[in-house]
């Protein structure tokens, strides 16, 4: 009677061994663009989950129990760092109780390890806007060179977690670098159609502007979440007339009344910049830039 039971148990164990060896590392990215970088590096050898959605404000995120479950199973957490997820990620990590992805462990990887952040401007008036605060701008993935740097370090980290596919990860990172560098001159050339400086809602696109040599005219809301002053907006309207501001760029979640008012007062075009595009291999990250550049190019004409 017991012999068939032993037989079944042995069969189950034999079947379980290949499935365990084939288990793909789970990478959890905090924002969609980082998820695309992870897909490009990991390819078919990893499973990628993204916590926030495209078009969602990453500063204001309300995690659900399903996000805790996702993080519980993670082998690597890929976060932007520099305070972007500071309001919600620490509590999510505590709830998930996954030692593998706790800060300081091998499975915790942020942009802070890969890139040198630029500062953020501070002050509410146009004069004080020139000062730079010690706060670091967390939107580094909008610079393609930063994407390459992060991908290279991510490949090394994935290789440590999953040594079997170490070479594949490194090869993918090299392919990703090649694809991005090939596309970069074309993006820069097409961005030349934009004539004049650009006004943005927050500092989200500073990296992109730096990478594409676009002049920043100022911010609509210099301090996130704090209503700008009447004087600041009046200064922006004056500037737009004197400097010839070409466009107003806003995040998909900031296309509100103030930006629309400013656009209607000045006659400047207001466009919402996409923040992610889903794809496979290196496509998603590159497609995000293609989409941004195409939109700006189209509206510049």
């Amino acid at each position: 009677m017991t012999q068939p039971l032993y037989g079944c148990a042995i069969i189950v164990m034999i079947l379980a061994i290949p499935s365990l060896s084939n288990a793909k590392p789970v990478v959890v990215a905090t924002v969609p663009a980082l998820g695309e970088i992870a897909k490009a590096v990991g390819g078919q050898y990893i499973n990628v989950h993204v916590l926030t959605r495209s078009g969602q404000n990453p500063y204001v995120f309300f995690p659900r129990p399903s996000h805790v479950d996702t993080l519980e199973k993670a082998d690597l957490l890929f976060a932007a760092g520099f305070g972007l997820e500071g309001k919600w990620l620490p509590s999510l990590l505590l709830l998930a109780e996954n030692e593998q992805v706790m800060p300081g462990s091998i499975g915790y990887f942020t942009g802070e390890e890969a890139i040198q952040a630029i500062g953020t401007m501070r002050g509410m008036t146009s004069k004080s806007l020139k000062k730079w605060s010690p706060d670091e701008n967390p939107h580094w993935w909008f610079d393609p060179q930063n994407g390459i740097k992060a991908a290279a370090l991510l490949a090394i980290r994935l290789g440590e977690i999953d040594p079997v596919h170490e070479h594949e990860y490194l090869n993918h990172a090299i392919a990703f670098r090649t694809a991005v560098l090939q596309a970069l001159p074309d993006w820069k050339r097409r961005m030349e159609s934009l004539k004049g400086p650009v006004l943005t809602y927050h500092h989200t696109y500073n990296y992109f502007m730096k990478a594409m040599d676009v002049e920043l005219a100022g911010f609509i809301e210099p301090r996130a979440g704090i209503e700008p002053s009447t004087r600041h907006l009046s200064n922006l309207i004056d500037q737009s007339r004197n400097k010839g501001i070409a466009m107003i760029w806003v995040e998909p979640y900031h296309e509100g009344a103030i930006a629309k008012r400013l656009a209607s007062e000045t006659g400047i075009r207001l466009i919402s910049i996409p923040d992610a595009k889903a794809g496979n291999t290196a496509n998603g990250y590159i497609e995000m830039f293609n989409k941004i550049v195409l939109k700006i190019e189209r509206w510049s004409q």
Binding site: R53, G55, Q56, V60, F61, P252, Y253, G256
Partner: peptide, 10 residues
């Protein structure tokens, strides 16, 4: 919705 939280605040 994709950016629902922001919309509710808005």
């Amino acid at each position: 919705l994709p950016h629902g939280e922001g919309q509710l605040m808005g």
